[in-house]
Design a protein around this nucleic acid. Structure first.
Length: 361
DNA sequence: CATTCGTGGTA
DNA sequence: TTACCAAGAAT
């Protein structure tokens, strides 16, 4: 049966709809670094690693990190044997650093309690650190070829449009999941999951969906009503407050800069930072600087400000600088030569601070 | 159920 | 320049 002779999607069974999507997938397959080629056996380690990296992260952002990780740590055993700090350095810049900490914990659990093999059932996968409903289903389907309903942002969008679901996210999530489950086929679970996500990523896009290219367009209720681009609806998010702080760019006589490790949990947990005052909505005053300065010296303010936006607030960091005299090696933190900063677990905001300091100091 | 948790690309 | 957005999870 060709696409041209197929009946409208609404008159088809879900198996027939799935077959049409899989046909589209085979004709439009993307070559991604973590994707097994046709005929290749999927490697659960690579599937897992890619799915963690892709959480709330675009393909172009994740790809170079995936290549670096798999080259340096080709197996879950290798990753489990590595120190957490090595993972944090390698993860720096990718964001959501709890993912890296959970990645490490998960690798060690798989090696220590599962004999180095990932479980092939959703419930067992769900129990592992950093693996939630989406990732458990994705690994089940893609790595093990077992039936599972994969629901990510792409699938939510495709399903909301197909069924013209107008209730807003996130409350409507369970409904979208149920609808998605009714269409999940028994055949080619991994390809179907990736086909749904590819469809959302390349055709059923958030803005200006390419309905003319969609294998499901004739059965799409939202397109029929002319509301496809408005779906899925989402509740308005609270606007981001602006927090402010002052960073201390402190050099020692050797030309090394003082850095420190952030708390193991929370924002940028376990990552390296330039010492600073607390980040609060009020501009830090002189007393705050005195209270937070790593050592008591005279500070000179650098011109300008470092701006950065996190997931839930804007940050404006002023930078002050000073030269530490000899004998200050006992401060809380570590002296790092400027030319060795690339070996540190510096998140993007701190890379901005470093660049700003080097440009203006 | 709402909040916390990054980053870079895009319109 | 701002806001939105991306293959979510943990609490």
């Amino acid at each position: 049966m060709t696409d041209d002779s197929a009946p409208p999607l609404s008159e088809q069974t879900s198996e027939q709809a799935a077959a049409r999507l899989l046909s589209w997938y085979d004709r439009n397959r993307r070559d991604l670094p973590w994707r097994a080629k046709p005929g290749e056996v999927a490697d659960p380690y690579r599937v897992w690693l890619s799915e963690i990296m892709l959480q709330q992260t675009t393909v172009p952002a994740a790809a170079p990190y995936f290549r670096a990780f798999t080259e340096r740590w080709p197996t879950v055993h290798a990753l489990a044997a590595a120190p957490l700090d090595d993972l944090l350095v390698a993860w720096a810049g990718l964001g959501y650093y709890a993912r890296a900490r959970n990645l490490h914990a998960c690798a060690r659990t798989v090696v220590d309690r599962h004999g180095g093999r990932f479980p092939d059932e959703e419930t067992a996968l769900l129990a592992l650190p950093g693996i939630g409903a989406y990732t458990a289903a994705a690994i089940t389907a893609i790595a093990f070829g077992r039936k599972a309903t994969v629901v990510d942002g792409n699938v939510e969008r495709v399903i909301a449009r197909m069924f013209a679901v107008t209730d807003p996210l996130p409350a409507v999530k369970p409904t979208l999941r149920r609808l998605a489950a009714t269409r999940t086929p028994d055949q080619r679970p991994g390809d179907y999951a990736q086909a749904m996500m590819d469809l959302g990523a390349t055709v059923c896009t958030p803005r200006k969906p390419k309905c003319m290219l969609c294998p499901w367009s004739d059965g799409c209720a939202a397109r029929a009503s002319g509301i496809a681009e408005t779906l899925p609806r989402k509740l308005a998010k609270a606007d981001k407050p602006t927090r402010r702080g002052t960073a201390f760019w402190l050099l020692n006589p050797d030309g090394a800069v003082l850095l420190r490790r952030r708390a193991e949990r929370g924002l940028l947990g376990g990552m390296t930072e330039v010492p600073s005052t607390a980040w609060e909505e009020t501009t830090p005053d002189a007393a705050a600087l005195l209270a937070h300065q790593p050592i008591a010296v005279g500070w000179r303010a650098l011109p300008g400000v470092v701006r950065h936006t996190f997931s839930h607030f804007h940050l404006e960091l002023g930078v002050v600088t000073a030269q530490a005299g000899a004998g200050w090696h006992a401060v809380d933190g570590m002296w790092v030569p400027i030319d060795q900063l690339d070996q540190q677990a510096l998140p993007s905001v701190m890379v901005k601070v470093v660049r700003h300091a080097l440009a203006h100091a």
